[in-house]
Design a protein around this nucleic acid. Structure first.
Lengths: 341, 341
DNA sequence: TTGTATGCGTTATCAG
DNA sequence: CTGATAACGCATACAA
């Protein structure tokens, strides 16, 4: 059925080996021009399509890299994914995508799957959880994958023993806290995300620590935990509103933008005006932020670049100690947090 | 280096064939229990990981499906992609992702790439362009891929000769036009997207035709063409504003949501209030819409479901005529288009 | 039920 | 520079 390289060779009147060399045509152009052209013509005529699986077998390496994200429909992840696909294309590789829906068990399953696919590298993106068991399991799986020659790089916390692009969460939210304080804000609430989500936790800690030092601590009961999603932001704010807490709060900080955006929707639904009655700030600077009103103060992350960066790391050797690449967030003040006093 | 099935067989003291049968363990459980267990134990001990490429060769089929989208960072595509990855996971398949940046040439390249990967199926999502040459070329590539046993399904216009999930663009925008007319709107402008983009064109035509029939035709100079992106919406609206055209216009219809959202940002930048000075409507009902203000009137598409649907089509036989599955859009009236008179 | 032998489509080794 | 031929890792007819 399928036309193979042997067919091409026969059609061109050369040996299999010559056909292979002519078509691959890599570094060693050790094939006579007329033969090469005959082979190429034959391939064209027969509509030959090399079998990547067979090539992978013979060569001992594939052209695939695995990308594992929490949720591809989320703007944060899809933007990073865009950076990954671009970098992969540049490197002549294809990316195999897996979306775990934040299920650590599924993460493990997908690492195994990529392993079986003999992917060149695995890229894992998404904050880790405070769960030693699952982190250790994952670290072990990745270590084994690496021991078999695969490359690994992660965007998240550097606790998997592999190359990591890590966001300076604490420093960024400290910075944000200082700037907001400078604008006159003193009474804050925090939509803190899941308690065991390390990214969320770091962001909260940086924010609260800085504010405590500044003499404007965030009361414990104004730190609301919930899902790291839009609805998490919405529900958390709805809860604050129903408690009447928002009347005393000047600014709500959500640990990521989608939460902040959901939070603003909830505030509006509760009849509050933004930023008149309450101000908001987020984290990530996802692209869709440009178009929400009022424009949201946030911390910008170079998401696409991070995708490209993590891809290059995953593909480069680095045999020694795991490399840690810190990424700074840049505070962007916008209309959602006007000067207060 | 790598541990192979032969290693497992030797370790378990059985033949290669038995080891294969024990580990694959498919329909025919034709291997004695004690042997099977010995093999499984050996595999576990040796940390055996089957080579998917070798399996693909031996079996004659892979477990990969190819997904080609215009831009994975776009909410429309990433939501569909989410539906595809879910459906693929359910089917025990992995998805190889390619983002073309709306480049038809690259689309062709990726089809070829998926072909080489011997992907089980190819899913192509994104509106076609009015460009017979590139469409024909693509159709030919897909036909060849199918003739080699691959499945193909598309979300877009049914002009590639393959199974297609097609959005009822005309009917949907006609419906929208009627409803807006019913709300009292008479003077419209349209952000029409690229002139050669078929989805954009269909949406514009349905909208304009209906309005013409209703006696409220959209003047040609209020139909602005531009990119199918957020910035396309922004720039188109900025142009309308700078021409002073928005003073006479009651409602701006953008052929997709990201354009509408960009358009609203531009209107605000021009000092207009929404919907006080001008109303807006979009198309797609992307998830992020929930959180923009005012909430945007649009036409809802079941994006995730469409992703699942197109995956199932691509994976199912259907040897006869290409199947066309129409998807209806549902008009959702929101705050951006209040009753006018 | 198990084992042997062959083939899958390429690349790479090693002679000519 | 070219051509046999042996891998690559696994599945599967066929034989035992």
């Amino acid at each position: 059925m399928a036309v193979t390289l042997s067919d091409v060779a026969r059609e061109a009147g050369v040996s299999l080996a010559t056909a292979s060399r002519a078509i691959n045509g890599s570094a060693d152009r050790t094939v006579r021009t007329d033969l090469r052209e005959r082979v190429l013509a034959a391939a064209e005529r027969l509509r030959y399509s090399p079998d990547a699986n067979a090539q992978a077998m013979a060569r001992g390496r594939t052209i695939a890299i695995g990308l594992i994200v929490h949720e591809i429909a989320d703007a944060y992840f899809s933007t990073i994914a865009s950076g990954v696909t671009s970098a992969a294309e540049r490197a002549g590789l294809v990316v195999t995508l897996a979306s775990t829906d934040r299920d650590t068990a599924r993460e493990l399953t997908f690492v195994d799957l990529m392993q079986r696919q003999r992917a060149r590298a695995i890229i894992l993106v998404g904050g880790r959880f405070d769960d030693d068991t699952s982190n250790d399991r994952l670290a072990a799986a990745l270590a084994e994958y690496r021991s078999r020659g695969g490359g690994v790089a992660v965007i998240g916390q550097p606790l998997l023993g592999v190359d990591t692009v890590t966001i300076q969460n604490r420093a960024s939210t400290r910075d944000l806290a200082h700037q907001l304080h400078g604008l006159g804000y003193r009474r804050f609430a925090v939509l803190a995300g899941p308690e065991n989500h390390l990214t969320a936790r770091e962001r909260v800690e940086g924010f609260r620590d800085a504010l405590a030092e500044l003499g404007a601590p965030v009361p414990r009961d104004l730190v609301i935990h919930g899902p790291f999603t839009r609805d998490g932001g919405y529900d958390g704010t709805a809860e604050l509103a129903s408690r009447g807490a928002l009347e005393d709060v000047e600014l709500v900080f959500a640990v990521n933008d989608v939460m902040a955006v959901g939070a603003m929707a909830a505030a509006r639904a509760a009849g509050l005006s933004i930023p008149g009655d309450v101000a908001f700030a987020g984290f990530d600077d996802i692209l869709t932020l440009r178009d929400i009103t009022p424009s949201l103060t946030t911390i910008r992350l170079p998401l696409t670049d991070m995708g490209a960066m993590v891809t290059e790391m995953a593909l480069s050797p680095a045999k020694d100690e795991p490399r840690i690449v810190p990424v700074d967030g840049e505070v962007i003040l916008r209309d959602s947090t006007p000067r207060l006093r």
